[in-house]
Design a protein around this nucleic acid. Structure first.
Length: 472
RNA sequence: GGCGGGGUAGCCAAGUGGUAAGGUCGGGGUCUGCAAAACCUCUAUUCGCGGGUUCGAUUCCCGCCCCCGCCUCCA
């Protein structure tokens, strides 16, 4: 069965056919963070989705080259640097670092490249592209010295967002003080320097200034990946104007189709509402870590809803994620013990219960993660039942663990192996002695003590098991 | 007003023209010194509402309602 994705451009489910079918190489560009503050969990929902996408394509033997830009110059970063009275680069550096820490916490695979908008190489490329657009009449310098894209000259403008240009209305979200533009929809390619920008400026044929936001992605994508790429991702709010502008800029320069598949991730809501600082429902990764949730628990909770459906973030949802992961952890532990022969080495496989390919087939279908996880949990119940009945032996358990390794290359929710600290091992040993002596009171006290230290003691028919408590 | 996404059990959520996966929570049971885990079992005669097509619709068509987003620099 083929891989299918919902392409924003066509608003239809399409069979995935990358350009280089023989080499199985895929070029993927994903819009990254603007480093003016710490990224919030809504941002990370998109990045986790992109990670899932990349990892699933790799599971399907594609070689993915992914680029994620870092926007380190724009109105907000400049404003922040001015407010802090420090140079722009000094202002953005800690947010860049925080971003990389956060993606590591969420087990997001690092992109091959993280180009920065202020990199001289890319600024030059942006200036070159703008020059081409101007020479072709697709852009013009206005009286305010800024250079704008002449959207009426690009026939395809509006096709991604499915907007009719005559219907564009101002929401007043952006201050509309650009009276020099020919059309309200014309967007800035090059922003002329003004006093507010301080020393943030580059020389250009149009005078000192800085690049517009949209051109940076066009320049960095084509500089690193070439004129055409297979997949471009982002949040739904990037469809317009950002990605629409990228198409106009890039295709205006190259004359070739820029992107084959546009994939956009729906928003994350918090308690049914848009996240905002004024509502007090604005969370960053450190906020959740402080509440005791782990990176993989957050990853799971951000991943478990299909990317095109809105995801409502709640603490109840975090608890659910924790419990679901604990179920997986216990299952893995059981399989490992079965493989190691700890439970009963004489056991043979009595039933034919083998993993299948349905998990990855579910992901082939526009990353249907809910269906895929449903299959995982069904498999867990079936294998647990067989283990309960002593019908599943080491060979089958091993096959299931290998299957797990395969699907976890996409999910990446494997528990960390926590070794038993000496003090915990001593408590566990003491409790085992108490149980042998049938000193239940002491045994229960020791269990409580272990629990208080974040460890859980469970008595099985094969003896006591001590594991790290969920979330601890 | 234009353009999208969504409305399935307490909560999260998959899905199909033929009668509702899975997770989580809660009740009961097996096991256990007690727990835990696991397993068994119960919890939507029903899929936002109203029509239509059909032998049959949650699934297709029409109309309506609600939520969320975008409509010029927010993932």
């Amino acid at each position: 069965m083929s891989i299918r994705f919902f392409n924003t451009y066509s608003r239809a489910l399409e069979e995935f056919q990358p350009r280089a079918s023989a080499s199985r190489k895929i070029d993927m560009y994903t819009c990254g963070p603007t480093v003016y503050s710490r990224a919030h969990i809504g941002n990370f929902r998109a990045y986790v989705f992109e990670d899932l996408l990349q990892r699933h394509l790799e599971l399907r033997d594609y070689k993915v080259c992914r680029v994620m830009n870092v926007t380190d110059v724009d109105d907000k970063t400049i404003r922040g640097a001015r407010a802090a009275k420090i140079p722009l680069a000094e202002f953005t550096a800690p947010f860049k670092q925080a971003f990389f820490e956060d993606i590591e916490t969420l087990r997001i695979k690092r992109a091959n490249e993280f180009p920065a908008a202020t990199d001289r190489r890319y600024v030059d490329k942006m200036i070159a592209m703008i020059g081409t657009l101007v020479s072709r009449g697709l852009a013009y310098q206005a009286d305010d010295k800024s250079v704008y894209y002449r959207i009426n000259k690009f026939p395809g403008y509006g096709k991604l967002a499915h907007f009719d240009l005559t219907q564009l209305q101002s929401t007043g979200r952006v201050k509309n003080d650009e009276y020099d533009k020919e059309h309200v929809g014309d967007f800035a390619l090059w922003k002329a320097w003004d006093e507010e920008d301080g020393d943030v400026k580059w020389d250009s044929p149009w005078g000192p200034g800085r690049p517009g936001w949209h051109i940076e992605c066009s320049a960095m994508a084509t500089a690193i990946l070439g004129d055409q790429i297979d997949i471009h991702c982002g949040g739904v709010d990037n469809i317009f104007p950002h990605h629409e502008a990228e198409i106009a800029q890039t295709e205006g320069v190259t004359g070739k189709q820029f992107v084959r598949y546009w994939l956009h991730c729906a928003h994350l809501l918090v308690d049914g509402q848009k996240m905002s600082k004024s509502l007090g429902n604005f969370y960053t990764l450190p906020d959740l870590l402080e509440r005791g949730y782990t990176g993989r628990e957050i990853r799971y909770s951000l991943m478990r809803v299909h990317y095109r459906a809105p995801l409502n973030f709640t603490w109840e949802g975090m608890e659910e994620a924790r419990q679901a992961l604990a179920r997986i952890d216990d299952w893995l532990e059981r399989l490992h013990e079965t493989v190691a022969g700890k439970i009963d080495p004489s056991k043979a496989d009595k039933i034919d219960l083998q993993p299948g390919a349905r998990f990855e087939e579910a992901l082939d279908d526009d990353l249907n993660i809910s269906a895929a996880l449903g299959l995982l949990f069904e498999s867990i119940r079936e294998t647990n039942r067989a283990l309960d009945r002593n019908e599943l032996g080491a060979a089958a358990a091993n096959a299931w663990l290998q299957w797990w390794e395969r699907i976890d290359s996409v999910l990446v929710i494997q528990p960390e192996v926590a070794s038993l600290p000496a003090a915990i091992a001593a408590l566990a040993e003491a409790r085992m002695q108490a149980r042998l002596a049938k000193d239940w009171r002491k045994s229960d006290e020791l269990r409580d003590e272990l629990s208080a230290r974040g460890w859980e003691a469970r008595d099985t028919k094969d003896g006591q098991k001590v594991t790290r408590r969920a979330g601890a």
